[in-house]
Design a protein around this nucleic acid. Structure first.
Lengths: 187, 187, 187, 187
DNA sequence: TATGAATGAGTCTTCATTCAT
DNA sequence: AATGAATGAAGACTCATTCAT
């Protein structure tokens, strides 16, 4: 019963999330195949890592598309809904492809795609700011970055079992949108 | 022109922040000394990493102490000021000792100290929640984690030069306390 | 043309007998393989040395067993024959596994086995003394040690080509049993 | 209170006897001086080892001279006394300079001197054989070698504390001259 | 003279990768 | 297609030795 390329990638990301410096031998073992076979599927380690990165970017892109962040001319209400959907989607990305968010790669292709997705995300955030959905006194680039940071925190908290998986999205949204300050504080 | 232990550590952290898997040879070169000399100061790689971790924890502890998070019986106003001071201090830690926040170590000592500092931080956050300074509908452990995540984002944004260093603390505090949502959104 | 584990061990002992501090690189070269391949067979230097020690102890144990030193209740004649067979067997061990006789190891297993074989040998020597086959005015432990010493001498003489291999056993037995003094000396 | 060259050599041989692969650092520590100082006395490791070898050869030569093995024209009784004195002297050499007996050196000087002393010893043994003091049916070179082997055994037994130091010479002489066989065996 | 500091060369070990079956 | 065997390159660490004080 041959192990498919997809199954190998699944095993690889699971293992690399647990120990990011895992060797090809360890990944192969985790996938239940020999080192040589792993190399038949991915000619080099970089090849494998790039493929994992590609999958993560695919997933991220899908999250953006499914949320519909490119839909122009939307009103505040729509934008708010889109924003929620986007974050929800990205929580999923973080949970499944966590480690590749920070992967060091030299692949031009991945860097370019990643930059493009960031650009789209940034444009969306700026649209939200113009529409009064998000604060305008914070640089859009920082708002974008803060999502990334909170996703890192989320992944870590989930990994440690400190928060319930079903709570993940709510906590993420609350912290991102409203912050930790008590409401009385704002009055 | 002898290179002091402290200078080596400074060079090491600078280099390791840039590339966390740097070899001893690369670290040595970055410090302007030979591999062998680096080994004279830190008998093993782990030794060096543990020392860096110790420094980061020292700095973190100092941030907690200087903010005064252990001062019990403080009123809401005091707690708010302390919280601000704490975050400000931690921004400094993230800027200078960034990478070690996520360092994987086997050192019992470091793990124990780290756990203790987390515990103190958590207790402080809970105090803030009881005093109505921070929201109570978010688990304290998640609030703590979100600080960590935002610090990661901050470090990354600074590294990329996307935000002005002088803005760092303000952005951090705003995102953490009030979130990215426009105020009109809350009304 | 794969080199078997056994062949590597043979090459290793040959080389280590000649230069006991030989590096893994030298041993690998002597075995006609690369350093990395040597490490595939023996994960560490200690592993290799322990394996060599094990082989030597196996051989020694076989020498004891084949001589039949454990046969209790034997008469003087039998004991004398057994003693001769034992020494003969040990000459073989010294010739083939010489260096490991003095190898420094940390392996509990080897130390324990070695101690056990020494104990058996000692018990046999004591039996020979009780039966009047060996002198009783020399401590058994010294008699045992003197065998060891003469084997070292034998190996050295053979290595230098000073004595004929076919003479080895005779010289060993003569020196051990009767000493170098002229018989007239004893009258 | 400066440590004299002689004291360093004493410490060195003591330490090297215990662990023959000791590093310069360990030897220096054993001598109570720094590595650099050790190097001021002996410019290289080989230098130190050669010096130790020289001392051992000096001691051996003295043993030969004091026993008087070069005295030609001696009768059997004299030869026997000389032989005893020689062995007694060599026991002392083994006790004090043990390890250097097997030291690997490239020093031409030492090899030449060692060969010369062996030659003298061999000539003496042959003289003993001709005079009927030692058996003639064993090659002189093997008789010589057996002395060496028994000295190794003696050193080992002493190191392990298996025999009493005061017994050393007697055991050595008995084993060398008369062997381990019970006298009844010879009748 | 004595020594702390520095280092080039060498050792063991691991890893990604290739090859022959 | 799959894999056991083999290896070059690289990394951590040690050692003998030199240098500056």
């Amino acid at each position: 019963m041959a192990v498919s390329r997809e199954q190998i990638l699944d095993a690889a990301i699971r293992h690399l999330n647990a120990s990011p410096t895992a060797s090809m031998a360890q990944i192969a073992e985790a996938a239940g195949i020999s080192r040589a076979t792993l190399h038949r599927h991915f000619s080099s380690r970089d090849d494998l890592v790039v493929e994992l990165g590609r999958r993560a970017l695919d997933r991220w892109e899908r999250a953006q598309d499914e949320a519909g962040i490119a839909e122009t001319g939307a009103g505040p209400a729509d934008l708010r809904a889109t924003l929620m959907a986007l974050i929800e989607g990205e929580v999923g990305v973080a949970e499944e492809h966590g480690f590749t968010l920070t992967v060091e790669t030299t692949s031009e292709e991945l860097l370019a795609r990643s930059a493009e997705l960031e650009r789209r995300e940034l444009a969306f955030i700026e649209a939200c700011q113009r529409a009064g959905v998000l604060r305008s006194d914070l640089p859009a680039v920082w708002v974008s970055s803060s999502i990334y940071g909170l996703l890192v925190a989320l992944r870590e908290s989930l990994r440690r079992g400190e928060i319930a998986p079903r709570e993940a999205t709510r906590l993420m949204v609350e912290s991102f949108l409203r912050g930790a300050s008590d409401k009385g504080d704002l009055s």
